[in-house]
């Protein structure tokens, strides 16, 4: 009953210090191994994502943050280990339960990945047309609702992706990711390429949507402001595994040299003083 809406404390007021073992795990990754050719990118990686949280995922460039996201989404094959989504192991899934799961997550790709031949409205309607039985009126209204929810003006609905600015592409792509009211939202560097004001607004938008829709958000990011302002928990990737995880305080207290350099650098200090 509370599946779509977790406890009010998790969705409305955030409680990052709630004990982990009491919360439902929506994504559970164990001993994950991913590699290309000779190169091993993930080695024995464990990760839990809890329902209703915003998890920020950081790590040095080229260490495979996007690869992990793609491995969870099934776009990159894994060599060993297990991935469970909503308590089901993705390896043992039938095709129909797999597509059932795919309807329950939405993905915002780094470059937006909007279909370039379709308008924004048609992009948002693609998953709806494919999966839902909707009257034309409702189809149109829902698409416009999502477009307005992500903060785009109505006249953007009939534009092609090539006519949009970078920030608008991110928003339109977010509207598409939200079109089936997913439970998990994957964001791959959502604020990269946005100006600081636009990035701040985008963070705020994610937080608002997370509160109202009860989303679980998995966010790969480099943006320290995002980490400070919207993330409940942060996981840091290094050497093919998670080297540190926890709320921002835990990251600040971490002894790992990379995590220290990341969260105690000059940019981090300014983000901290600005964020609160």
């Amino acid at each position: 009953m509370s599946a779509a809406f977790p406890s009010a404390s998790a969705s409305g007021v955030r409680a990052p210090h709630e004990r982990d073992d009491e919360r439902e795990v929506v994504i559970r990754v164990r001993d994950l191994e991913v590699g290309f050719g000779e190169r091993l990118i993930m080695k024995g990686l464990d990760l839990d994502v809890y329902r209703g949280e915003i998890l920020g995922f950081v790590g040095p460039s080229g260490q495979g943050k996007s690869v992990l996201t793609r491995a969870i989404l099934g776009l990159v094959p894994k060599r060993a280990g297990s991935i469970e989504v909503f308590g089901e192991n993705v390896d043992n899934m039938t095709e129909s339960s797999r597509s059932e799961i795919e309807r329950r997550w939405g993905v915002l790709f780094q470059q937006g990945a909007l279909f370039s031949a379709l308008t924004v409205r048609q992009n948002v309607q693609v998953p709806m047309r494919e999966y839902l039985e909707l009257s034309p009126r409702l189809l149109d209204e829902l698409a416009m609702l999502k477009i307005e929810m992500v903060g785009l003006k109505p006249d953007a609905a009939d534009k092609l992706p090539s006519e949009l600015s970078g920030g608008m592409i991110k928003r339109a792509s977010l509207a598409r990711a939200l079109s089936l009211d997913p439970e998990i939202l994957f964001l791959d560097e959502p604020t990269s390429g946005l100006d600081p004001i636009g990035a701040g607004e985008f963070d705020e938008l994610i937080a608002t949507l997370q509160r109202t829709l009860g989303l679980t958000v998995f966010m790969v990011t480099h943006d320290l402001d995002s980490l400070y302002t919207v993330c409940d928990r942060i996981a840091a990737l290094g050497d093919g595994r998670i080297i540190a995880h926890g709320p921002i305080d835990a990251m600040l207290a971490s002894e790992d040299p990379w995590v220290r350099a990341y969260f105690h650098g000059k940019r981090a200090r300014s983000a901290m003083s600005a964020g609160g």
């Binding site: 009953m1 809406f5 409702l138 609702l145 999502k146 009211d181 829709l213």
Partner: peptide, 11 residues
């Protein structure tokens, strides 16, 4: 109501 999402709320 068990569950409500944007579609239900909109309708």
């Amino acid at each position: 109501i068990d569950r409500l999402d944007t579609l239900g709320a909109w309708v």
